[in-house]
C-alpha cells in the first residue's frame, strides 16, 4: 500500500462540513414532520369508512413501502417535470423522503391505534366526552407514547436518507459539501470517512436526545 493519507485538508473544511450537518438535520426534521402529518392522515384514511380515501391511502402506503426510497426521490425530481413541476434538489429530496416516511409511519400509527384497547374510548365517552375530545385527551397521548420510538427511528433513517441528495445534485447538505470538496482534491476516502463519522455522531446524538426527552415526557 503506497497511498499516503492526507487528513489536514479535510479538517480545514470542517466548518463547511458542520454547516452541511445542519442542512442534513434540517431536511431530516422537515421530512419527518411532513411524514408524520401525512402518515396520521393516511392511517386514519385507511381505517376510516370512506372507500375512496382508504384505497388512496393503501395505494400510497404500498407504493411507498415496495419501491426504493431513491426511486421515489428520482420520481419527484425527474418525474414531476413532466407535469411542469420542477423542484430544486433540496425540495425534491425533502419531498421524496417525506413521501417515504409517510408510508412507513402510516402503518406505525395504524398499529399504535389498534394497540390501545377500545375500553379506553368507552371509559372516556362514559364520562361525557365527545368522540373528538376523547380522541385528543385519551387516545392521542397514549398513541404518541407507543409510536415515539418508531418515530425517532424514522427520523434517524431520514438523516441517513439525506445522503441520497448526492444523486440529485444537492451540494449544501453534509454529503453534498463533502462531495464538493472531494471533486476538487479526489481525497475521496479521507473526506467521506470524516463525513461517515459525522453522520454517526448525528444519529447517536438524536438517539440520546430522544431518550432524555422520553424520560422527561413519559413518567408512567
Amino acid at each position: 500500500m503506497n497511498y499516503s493519507f492526507h487528513w489536514r485538508p479535510v479538517f480545514q473544511v470542517m466548518p463547511e462540513m458542520l454547516a452541511g450537518c445542519l442542512v442534513t438535520v434540517e431536511i431530516a426534521a422537515l421530512s419527518t414532520v411532513i411524514g408524520v402529518a401525512i402518515g396520521v392522515a393516511l392511517a386514519l384514511g385507511r381505517t376510516g369508512g370512506n372507500r375512496a380515501a382508504a384505497a388512496f391511502a393503501l395505494a400510497w402506503i404500498e407504493f411507498g413501502r415496495n419501491t426504493p426510497g431513491l426511486f421515489q426521490i428520482y420520481l419527484v425530481y425527474f418525474g414531476l417535470g413532466s407535469f411542469g413541476l420542477h423542484l430544486n434538489s433540496y425540495a425534491a429530496l425533502t419531498a421524496g423522503i417525506a413521501f417515504n416516511n409517510a408510508s412507513y409511519l402510516a402503518e406505525t400509527f395504524r398499529g399504535g391505534l389498534r394497540a390501545i384497547p377500545s375500553t379506553q374510548t368507552r371509559a372516556a365517552r362514559s364520562l361525557g366526552m365527545s368522540a373528538p375530545l376523547a380522541f385528543r385527551l385519551i387516545m392521542l397521548p397514549q398513541l404518541f407514547r407507543i409510536v415515539y420510538y418508531p418515530m425517532v427511528n424514522q427520523m434517524i433513517l431520514s438523516v441517513l436518507m439525506t445522503a441520497l441528495g448526492l444523486t440529485v445534485g444537492l451540494d449544501t447538505d453534509l454529503a453534498g459539501v463533502t462531495q464538493h470538496f472531494n471533486v476538487l482534491t479526489y481525497r475521496t476516502f479521507e473526506y467521506f470517512s470524516v463525513a461517515a463519522a459525522l453522520y454517526y455522531l448525528i444519529a447517536k446524538a438524536m438517539m440520546l436526545t430522544s431518550r432524555v426527552v422520553a424520560w422527561r415526557l413519559f413518567r408512567y
Partner: peptide, 19 residues
C-alpha cells in the same frame, strides 16, 4: 448508523488503496 451510500463510496475508494 452511517448512510449506505457513504459506505459504498468509502469501500469503493478504499479497495484500490489496498491494491
Amino acid at each position: 448508523s452511517v448512510p449506505l451510500l457513504i459506505q459504498i463510496i468509502l469501500v469503493n475508494a478504499f479497495a484500490p488503496i489496498l491494491g
